[in-house]
């Protein structure tokens, strides 16, 4: 669309402002993590690695980090298996109404207000003695992650040519062989991105985790939340910076791998 010069200028400025607004909170965390004082006042004073040391050595921080890693890994595997199966079932269902209704049901965890669900789960877990257990965390996070897997895998299944399965079958492949050698490799990108989403969903989940944590088992977001509400501890900034760098590396690695695969 042809635009007048000043329209373009104003538009550019507005976009710059929105971009800064989006990115600033992420970047402000990095300088804070090297603060020499135990305060979150900006600008930080001096330079020190002490908050990174604290993250690595303080058992409160390291144990909650490993708890999150454990829960998120289990959730990623479980949610990917259940979500992929469900996406298949929905894709192959003959009744469009039935598959539409089931899909909507399976997606509801995304729209149910977090606190309402968290308090409901808390009530059930209190009776079932699941508060502060690994199993309790994995179950709750899995159901929150399944919608993301279903969406990612369904997007791949929609463009998958089902005649390929027929072709494999007519060449004598059994159903499982056809699935393993033809279908699975073709929808693998969807499954992998579902896996990644499931991992991140669990690793980052806070509301349900806040309710079902106890002193024996809490995840990293819960530790961060309690730390923020209790005192101004720059360790949070150090953790944020580490997570930011780790995610950047994973994404950059994924992009590089994707590029190389496309070239070869």
């Amino acid at each position: 669309m042809p635009m007048q010069k000043h329209t373009r200028l104003i538009l550019g400025l507005v976009c710059l402002l929105v971009a800064v607004w989006l990115v600033a909170p992420t970047l402000v965390v990095i300088p804070m993590s090297f603060n020499a004082n135990k305060s979150l006042a900006f600008p930080p004073v001096g330079f020190s690695w002490q908050w990174y040391e604290n993250f690595l050595t303080n058992p409160d921080w390291s144990s909650s980090f490993f708890n999150s890693l454990k829960v998120a890994t289990l959730v990623a595997v479980l949610a990917t298996v259940l979500g992929t199966l469900a996406a298949f079932g929905l894709d192959r269902m003959r009744s469009a109404t039935a598959s539409g209704i089931l899909r909507m049901l399976l997606i509801t965890p995304m729209v149910v207000p977090g606190v309402v669900l968290a308090i409901g789960i808390y009530a059930v877990y209190l009776d079932a003695h699941l508060v502060g257990t690994l199993g309790g965390f994995v179950l709750a996070h899995t159901i929150l992650a399944i919608p993301f897997v279903i969406i990612a895998v369904s997007a791949n299944l929609e463009v998958f040519d089902k005649r390929l399965e027929t072709a494999a079958a007519s060449c004598g492949a059994g159903r499982l062989t056809a699935f393993r050698t033809v279908t699975l490799p073709l929808i693998l990108p969807g499954i992998l991105s579902g896996l990644l989403f499931a991992f991140v969903t669990s690793f980052d989940e806070i509301i349900v985790a806040l309710f079902i944590s106890n002193p024996y088992l809490k995840t990293l977001p819960v530790q961060i939340f309690t730390s923020i509400t209790r005192d101004a501890d720059p360790t949070v900034a150090a953790v944020g910076t580490v997570l930011f760098l780790a995610t950047s590396l994973v994404i950059a690695g994924g992009l590089l791998l994707g590029n190389r695969r496309r070239k070869s």
Binding site: L22, V23, A24, P25, T26, V28, V29, M32, L40, F42, V200, F203, D204, I206, L220, P221, I224, F225, I228, V236, A237, V239, G240, L243, F244, T247, S248, I251
Partner: peptide, 18 residues
Amino acid sequence: LVPFWVSGVVRTMAWVIL
């Protein structure tokens, strides 16, 4: 997408700082 890279709680803490 950058905001998604940092955990939601950390981002809220960043807003406290700002």
